[in-house]
């Protein structure tokens, strides 16, 4: 498979994932705020900054993944976010008795081991994307979601 095709597939998949995850959270924003407020890991963070910050970063990743000039940055940001989500869930799953997950929609309904593996897979996709973008990308700009 051509490098550009793989990059397009990866950026498409990650964009769909982030748009879905961010929209699902935004649609039930009050619940999302209440959920992260009860997370034992996030107890000492200001939720008024954290909650919109997460949503903002997810939407920013989607925007960055749409343009060839910012594609690599988008993959970097995606790698960071996906790795954070994976480590967050993994830490809660393995070290805490109560496991809150603020994900909305179908992601929030996944069993935790499946959710962790799912996140890990998309983390690998994101890192793979950054390595594929080492050389200039010649991807058609119609990839805007």
């Amino acid at each position: 498979m051509k490098r550009n095709t793989i990059i397009t597939i990866l950026s498409y998949s990650l964009s769909i994932l982030f748009v879905y995850a961010a929209s699902a959270k935004a649609m039930v924003y009050t619940d999302f705020m209440a959920d992260i407020a009860k997370s034992p890991l996030l107890v000492n963070y200001n939720k008024a900054i954290l909650a919109p910050g997460i949503l903002g970063l997810e939407f920013l990743t989607v925007i960055l993944l749409q343009f060839n000039a910012t594609l690599k940055l988008g993959f970097y940001l995606s790698s960071f976010l996906m790795l954070m989500f994976t480590l967050y869930l993994g830490t809660l799953y393995f070290f805490y008795t109560n496991i809150p997950c603020s994900c909305g929609g179908i992601l929030g309904r996944m069993p935790y081991p499946v959710h962790i593996i799912f996140n890990l897979l998309f983390t690998i996709f994101s890192f793979y994307g950054t390595f594929l973008c080492s050389k200039p990308v010649d991807r058609p700009q119609s990839a805007v979601v």
Partner: peptide, 25 residues
């Protein structure tokens, strides 16, 4: 740097965590 940053953030969060506390906004 991304991996290290993410690990540091989670580690810092875990060290400051409070499983007993139920926080509201």
């Amino acid at each position: 740097a991304i991996v290290l940053g993410a690990l540091c953030f989670i580690l810092a969060s875990a060290l400051r965590s409070d499983p007993e506390k139920l926080m509201i906004n």
